[in-house]
Simulated scan of single mutants.
Amino acid sequence: MADEYFSLVCGDVPHDVLLTDPGVRVMDVVQVVRRLTGLSLWRSQGLVTQVPAVVLACVPEEDAAAAVSALRDAGARAETRERPEPDS
């Protein structure tokens, strides 16, 4: 009997949303972070002022892109980063 090996290919690599600069409209960015994360206003403001900060971790690529777009619309600089695959 021959051994068969299969390689699982996952098309949905988790992404992180990284806030690199809140810009000049900090309160607008705080409101977006609050909406995205569900954090309180106080914690959202703390997250925004401690950049670079991971706003969302391990989210699908589409959700990460939408979050970055919302942050950029509010005047912030943000980017997505692929999560490195864990060593097996």
Rank of each mutant, 00 (worst) to 15 (best):
E61D: 10
S7R: 13
L8D: 10
G38L: 06
Q31G: 08
L19W: 02
V48H: 00
V30H: 02
V59G: 02
L47E: 04
A76Y: 00
Q50T: 14
C10E: 12
A78C: 07
M27H: 15
A2W: 09
T20V: 08
L39V: 03
A78Q: 03
A70I: 00
L39R: 11
E62Y: 07
M1F: 14
L39Y: 11
D87V: 15
V13C: 08
A70H: 03
T80M: 12
V24M: 09
V30D: 05
V17F: 04
V24F: 14
T20Q: 05
G75A: 10
V24N: 11
E79V: 08
E61T: 06
W42V: 13
E82N: 06
E61Y: 05
L71F: 02
A57S: 14
A67P: 02
Y5W: 14
V32I: 10
C10V: 11
C10N: 13
T49A: 13
G38S: 09
F6P: 01
E61C: 07
F6Q: 12
D16W: 05
V9E: 13
G38I: 04
D16N: 11
E62K: 10
R83M: 10
A76V: 02
D21W: 10
D12N: 12
E79S: 10
F6Y: 15
Q45V: 01
P60M: 06
L47H: 01
S7H: 09
R81M: 06
R35A: 15
L19F: 05
E85I: 06
L47R: 01
A67E: 02
L47N: 00
E62L: 11
A57Q: 12
S88A: 15
A57W: 04
E62W: 09
D87Y: 13
R83N: 06
V55G: 02
A64R: 03
R83L: 09
V48L: 01
P86C: 08
D3Y: 11
R72D: 00
A70Q: 07
V33M: 08
L19R: 00
A70S: 08
A64P: 02
G11E: 09
D73P: 00
L47C: 05
P52C: 08
L8H: 12
Q31E: 15
A76F: 01
E79P: 00
R43T: 03
A74F: 01
V32Q: 03
A2M: 13
A78M: 05
P14C: 04
A53S: 10
A66M: 06
A78P: 02
V54C: 09
V24D: 12
A57D: 08
L8P: 01
V9N: 10
R72N: 07
G23H: 05
L41V: 12
V9H: 12
V54R: 13
A67T: 03
V48K: 00
S40N: 11
L47A: 10
E79Q: 11
E4C: 08
L56F: 04
V54M: 07
L41Q: 14
M27Q: 15
G75E: 05
E61M: 07
S69K: 13
A70G: 00
P60R: 13
R25Q: 14
C58N: 10
L19C: 04
C58S: 12
R43C: 00
R72I: 03
P84Q: 13
H15M: 12
D3M: 11
T37S: 08
Q50P: 01
V30Q: 04
